[in-house]
Nucleic acid binder design. Structure first.
Lengths: 108, 108
DNA sequence: CCCCCTATGTAGAGTTCCGATACAGTACTA
DNA sequence: TAGTACTGTATCGGAACTCTACATAGGGGG
C-alpha cells in the first residue's frame, strides 16, 4: 500500500456505482498518467480491480474508447480496510475553539 | 509524503511531550531500522525534526546513548496537515447496525 | 566463544513514482 | 500532407523510496 494506491482506491470507493476510466481517475486523484496506470495494472494483478473496454464507435463518439475500471468484491473489502488503517494514523481532530487550523492541501 | 513517513509523524505527534528515540520509534511504528533512520534524516533535512544526543554515561546507564528526536514548530504544523490529508482519503466510517466490518490490521 | 540485547546507522537490491513520451483516432487549418 | 490541437490509454527510464541484511559498539548469559 502506497499513497497513490490509496488515492485510487479512495476515488473508486467514493462512488462504487460510477463508471470510472483513466482520465477521470487522473482528475479525481490528481495523479499523473505515469503513476495512475501502473497502479491500475497492479490492482488488476492483485484481483482487486476489473477493466473493460467501452463498447462504442470512436468515430461516432468523436473520442477514443474508454477503459472502465471497477473494484471486485474482494477489492472493495480490501480497500475499505486499507483506508481505515491510513485513517488510524491521524489522531482524532476534535474541533478547537478559535484555532486557526491550516486546512489547505499540503504541498506533497 | 509516504506511509512510513506518515507513521513516524503520527508517532511523534501522538504525544508531543514524550522524548522519542530511534528504537522507541521502531517499536511504535513497526518500521525496521533501515527504513526509520533514512526517514528521520530526511525529516531533519526538511527542518521538521531536531535531534540531540542524550547526555548520559553509557557505562553508568548500562546502555548506549540515545538520540532524541522532536518535531519543530514547522514540523508539528506540517505533520498535522499531512495526516489530515491522509485521513480525508477514507470515507467517514459511520457506525453500522449489525455490520461485520473487518477491523483487523491489513497485511500490507 | 557465541549468541542475544540495547542502540544507531549503512549498503545494496528491489519496488514505486512520475515527467516525458508514444500511440491512435478525430478535427480543424492550410 | 502537413501541422496543431484534442481525447484517451499506455509505456519508458531515471530518481526516489523501502527494507533485508549487515556493521558498529558496549554489556550480559550460557
Amino acid at each position: 500500500m502506497t499513497i497513490p494506491v490509496a488515492k485510487v482506491l479512495s476515488a473508486l470507493l467514493a462512488d462504487p456505482a460510477a463508471e470510472r476510466y483513466g482520465l477521470d481517475l487522473m482528475k479525481l486523484t490528481g495523479l499523473p498518467s505515469g503513476t495512475l496506470y501502473p497502479v491500475l495494472h497492479r490492482l488488476q494483478a492483485a484481483g482487486w480491480l476489473l477493466a473493460d473496454w467501452e463498447e462504442v464507435d470512436p468515430a461516432a463518439a468523436g473520442r477514443p474508447a474508454r477503459r472502465y475500471y471497477r473494484l471486485t468484491a474482494e477489492g472493495v473489502g480490501a480497500a475499505r480496510q486499507a483506508l481505515a488503517e491510513l485513517r488510524a494514523l491521524s489522531p482524532d481532530p476534535r474541533p478547537r475553539r478559535g484555532g486557526a487550523e491550516p486546512t489547505g492541501a499540503p504541498a506533497w
